[in-house]
Simulated assay, not measured.
Amino acid sequence: MEAKANELLTAKQQPELALTAAKSSVTAQEPVVVSMLERFSATVPSPDASAKDPKC
């Protein structure tokens, strides 16, 4: 009976551990994504600029 209880407890903890690991990964990647988006938005010319300046 104790072995079955331990097995159920372990089975329940696996998804919780996976979720915790996924959340940690997302939290760690968030600053990288924000930085990339800031760089891309700073370098993309606006549609108006390309219409006025044919070199863009």
Rank of each mutant, 00 (worst) to 15 (best):
Glu16Ser: 11
Ser35Val: 03
Lys52Met: 07
Ala42Pro: 04
Glu30Lys: 09
Pro15His: 01
Pro54Arg: 03
Met36Asp: 14
Glu2Trp: 04
Lys55Ala: 12
Asp48Tyr: 11
Thr43Gly: 09
Val26Ala: 10
Ala18Lys: 12
Ser24Thr: 11
Ala28Cys: 04
Val26Gln: 10
Ser24Ala: 12
Glu7Cys: 09
Ala28Leu: 01
Thr20Met: 14
Glu30Ser: 10
Gln13Leu: 08
Val26Asn: 09
Thr10Asn: 13
Val32Asn: 03
Thr10Gln: 14
Pro47Val: 00
Ser35Pro: 01
Thr20Asn: 15
Leu17Trp: 11
Pro54Cys: 01
Ala11Lys: 06
Ala28Asn: 06
Glu16His: 06
Ala28Val: 02
Ala51Ile: 08
Leu19Thr: 14
Ser41Cys: 09
Leu8Lys: 08
Gln29Asn: 08
Pro31Lys: 00
Lys12His: 13
Lys4Ile: 15
Thr27Ser: 12
Glu2Ile: 05
Ala28Pro: 02
Phe40Val: 13
Val32Asp: 01
Pro54Gln: 02
Lys55Asp: 14
Ser24Lys: 11
Ala3Met: 11
Ser46Gln: 02
Pro31Ser: 00
Thr27Leu: 05
Leu8Glu: 06
Glu30Arg: 09
Ala11Glu: 05
Ala5Thr: 07
Ala21Val: 03
Pro47His: 00
Pro54Lys: 03
Met1Lys: 09
Leu9Met: 13
Val33Asn: 03
Ala21Phe: 02
Glu7Asp: 12
Cys56Phe: 13
Thr43Lys: 15
Thr10Phe: 13
Leu19Ile: 13
Lys12Arg: 15
Met1Asp: 13
Gln29Trp: 01
Met1Ala: 11
Leu8Ser: 03
Ser41Glu: 06
Thr27Val: 08
Pro54Asn: 02
Lys55Val: 08
Lys4Asn: 12
Ser50Val: 15
Val33Leu: 01
Val26Met: 08
Pro47Tyr: 00
Leu9Arg: 13
Cys56Met: 15
Pro15Arg: 00
Lys55Met: 10
Ala22Phe: 05
Ala21Met: 03
Ala5Pro: 06
Glu30Asn: 08
Pro15Val: 01
Cys56Ser: 14
Ser46Glu: 01
Glu30Ile: 02
Ser35Trp: 03
Val34Ala: 07
Gln29Ile: 02
Lys23Ile: 07
Val26Gly: 09
Gln13Val: 04
Ala11Met: 05
Ala5Ile: 12
Val34Glu: 11
Leu19Ser: 14
Val32Tyr: 03
Ala5Leu: 14
Glu2Tyr: 05
Cys56Thr: 15
Lys4Cys: 12
Val26Lys: 14
Leu9Ile: 11
